[in-house]
């Protein structure tokens, strides 16, 4: 008796759905992408309470040496010479968008006087809300991710 020849098996990897998967991944990244307006690396303070910061908030970052950078939330942050320049920046931002929140991204080791001058400028500019950027305070006391 003659056996029937086996059906030929395709040796190639099926790639027909690869483009679909790729486009799904693209859509995922496009939806989740978050262009950081401030890429300053600071050691953020840790807090147990952390609230979501609204998108497009204005950023003020202070590194440990006291250098201040500002961004209105629309463009990459730029350094400013001193705390007195934060007031004119904040006045501009509030004039264009009165309810705009400000994010204070300050290093946990920065002397408080720098933060004080920034908060004072925001108060004078009649800003309504500040978010103190923080990282997760984990149960075992270890720090979470970096800013």
């Amino acid at each position: 008796m003659r056996l029937k020849a086996r059906g030929t098996q395709n040796e190639g990897i099926p790639t027909a759905s690869m483009a679909d998967i790729a486009f799904l991944l693209i859509i995922f990244f496009m939806v989740t992408i978050n262009f950081e307006v401030d890429k300053t690396t600071v050691g953020l303070p840790t807090t147990e309470l952390r609230y979501e910061i609204p998108k497009k908030a204005a950023y003020i970052s202070i590194i440990a040496s006291g250098q201040i950078r500002v961004s209105s939330g629309e463009e990459i942050s730029v350094p400013v010479p001193g705390p007195e320049n934060v007031l004119s920046f904040a006045v501009d931002v509030v004039a264009n968008n009165p309810g705009k929140p400000f994010v204070l991204k300050a290093d946990k080791n920065v002397p408080y006087r720098y933060v004080d001058s920034v908060i004072d400028a925001l108060k004078q500019a009649r800003a309504e809300k500040i978010y103190l950027l923080s990282q997760q305070d984990t149960v075992d006391g270890a720090d979470g991710g970096d800013g």
């Binding site: 807090t47 609230y51 910061i53 991710g145 800013g147």
Partner: peptide
Amino acid sequence: FAATRGLDFSL
């Protein structure tokens, strides 16, 4: 994946 959370306080 930026750290976009913090403590809020109203001025």
